[in-house]
Computed example of a mutant assay.
Amino acid sequence: MPPNMHKRILNEIAEANNDKSAETVVYVPHEGDIYKMLGSIQGPRETPYEGGTFLLDIKLHDNHPFAPPEIKFITKVYHPNVSSQTGAICLDVLKSNWSPAMTLRLCLISIQSLLDAPDASSPQDFQVAKVYTSNKQQFIREAKTWTRVHANVSLDAYISSHYEL
């Protein structure tokens, strides 16, 4: 990897970790492999996800930033644009609208924003999208339940239970 690419990735990690207002964290569990990392975002305030900590699996491509990272939820999320089975995320900036100007911090903030503003017209999980469009109150109740049950593990606790430190 070119040294300037390594430096950019390290700068992106630092930027994500230093932005206290966004409440984002990036951690590289495999020392020496900065292409595989974990991320953490907080559920947006005044949403069914408020109070939850959502963990993400992040994989960068060898030609980062010229290809979007592969990001999926580790934490189970009840959301029309997130697969309840795989954690896959349907978000245009992680696919067709990717730009090399995007950073890890901006990716995490975009995912937080997606939690705040579901788009049922482009669902990743059709069942959840159906509930979202037909019965908003049921959707909110279910999303709050999933947040309470699944989004309660901190990144530190996840790391200590899944990786040798």
Rank of each mutant, 00 (worst) to 15 (best):
S21D: 10
M37N: 07
D125H: 08
Q85A: 12
T145F: 04
H61V: 01
D19N: 15
N18A: 12
L10E: 06
L104C: 08
T145N: 14
V153Y: 01
F126C: 12
L56V: 00
L56K: 03
S99T: 11
P80T: 09
H61K: 15
N4Y: 07
E142M: 09
K76V: 03
G32A: 10
T53L: 09
S40E: 14
I58T: 09
P29D: 06
L104Q: 09
V77E: 13
P118T: 07
V131S: 10
Y158G: 05
Q124P: 08
K130M: 03
D57F: 02
L56D: 04
A117I: 02
R45Y: 04
T133C: 11
S40G: 00
T53G: 00
D57P: 01
R8C: 01
E15N: 14
I41N: 00
V26D: 01
S161Q: 15
L108H: 03
V25C: 11
Y27A: 11
L115G: 05
K144D: 00
L38S: 07
G32F: 05
T103G: 05
P2A: 06
A143D: 01
A14G: 03
N4F: 03
L155F: 06
H30N: 11
T145A: 10
T86V: 10
Y78G: 06
D62A: 13
F54P: 00
I140Y: 02
T24W: 06
T53V: 09
E23Q: 15
I9H: 08
H79P: 08
Q137P: 00
V93W: 07
R148W: 02
R105Q: 09
V131G: 06
M102K: 11
V25K: 15
E23M: 15
S121T: 14
M1S: 13
Q137I: 15
K72G: 08
V82G: 12
Q127N: 14
I58L: 06
Y78E: 05
H6I: 11
S113Y: 07
N97I: 00
L106Q: 12
C90F: 05
F73S: 04
T147Y: 02
I140C: 04
Y163M: 00
Q127V: 08
T53E: 05
P65L: 09
M1G: 15
H6N: 12
H6C: 09
A157V: 09
F139N: 11
S160V: 07
W98H: 12
D33T: 12
A151M: 08
A22C: 03
